[in-house]
């Protein structure tokens, strides 16, 4: 098996304790390369914690996380993995262009990457406005752009579409799929269930446990539910009954 066919992310027996709570009691999963994988689940279920562990910024209590063939957080991964935090983490006092220019420089991105990214996240008319003067949705697109600008092989996106209108959400998801077609792997968290159908695969996370790791169609077939939201509820009910 060649290197490029190995999964993008392999998590084995991951345990995370935050404060005094065991947020992830032991989870194993894989994320295949070149796909858009959705990480869904209720608020407080551990999505951000899992994503942070994959990026390598979370202190973990046990288990292994392998990303693109290397242990999560290895220096060699820092230019290959892009991370968009749940709350926008860009410089509010700088313009959109200045923010992206800085993150492009850190990633060693080629010339032209900044302008291409500004277009991709649809901020051309606001490119010279300070981020503080943008709306919430625009702000989160700047944050998304700051990760896209380095063209990483793996994109970890924590609720990137919060606060976006349906048209923009459709466009952003279309962009995710274009990126995946070009070989980028995307792990995207959301708690909007209707976004589930836009993913190639779904991970359902609840209270640190993996309820499902399946394709959207597989999930519907398995639960007999008409949509992702009801499939998710059905899985919770079965788990609670067991």
């Amino acid at each position: 098996m060649t290197h490029s066919q190995a999964p993008a992310v392999v998590v084995e027996g991951l345990r995370v304790i935050r404060g005094s709570r065991e947020v992830i009691p032991g989870i194993s999963l894989t994320v295949p390369r070149g796909e858009v994988v959705g990480l869904l689940g209720p608020s407080g279920g551990g999505k951000t914690t899992l994503l942070r562990s994959i990026v390598g910024v979370q202190v973990v209590a046990g288990g292994t996380v392998t990303v693109l063939g290397e242990p999560a957080g290895s220096p060699g991964l820092r230019s290959r993995v892009g991370y968009v935090t749940q709350s926008p983490s860009v410089y509010g006092d700088l313009t959109v262009r200045a923010n992206l220019t800085y993150f492009a420089a850190l990633a060693g991105a080629p010339r032209g990457a900044v302008e291409r990214t500004i277009e991709a996240v649809d901020l051309t008319t606001d490119a010279d406005s300070p981020v503080d003067r943008l709306s919430g949705g625009q702000c989160s697109r700047v944050s998304l752009g700051a990760a896209l600008v380095g063209s990483p092989e793996l994109l970890i996106l924590d609720e990137p579409t919060v606060g976006l209108d349906p048209v923009l959400r459709r466009d952003i998801w279309a962009m995710f799929h274009r990126l995946a077609d070009d070989g980028t792997t995307l792990l995207v968290s959301s708690h909007v269930m209707d976004e589930a159908t836009r993913c190639d695969r779904l991970l359902l996370l609840r209270e640190g446990h993996l309820l499902a790791d399946d394709t959207p169609d597989g999930l519907l077939a398995r639960t007999g539910a008409p949509d992702a939201e009801r499939a998710f509820l059905a899985l919770i009910e079965t788990e609670e009954a067991a």
Binding site: G56, P75, R78, S79, Y83, P88, S89, F103, A107
Partner: peptide, 13 residues
């Protein structure tokens, strides 16, 4: 506190 430091430390910086 704005999270930019966390982000920076996940880049090659």
């Amino acid at each position: 506190s704005s999270g930019t430091l966390e982000r920076l430390l996940s880049t090659p910086l």
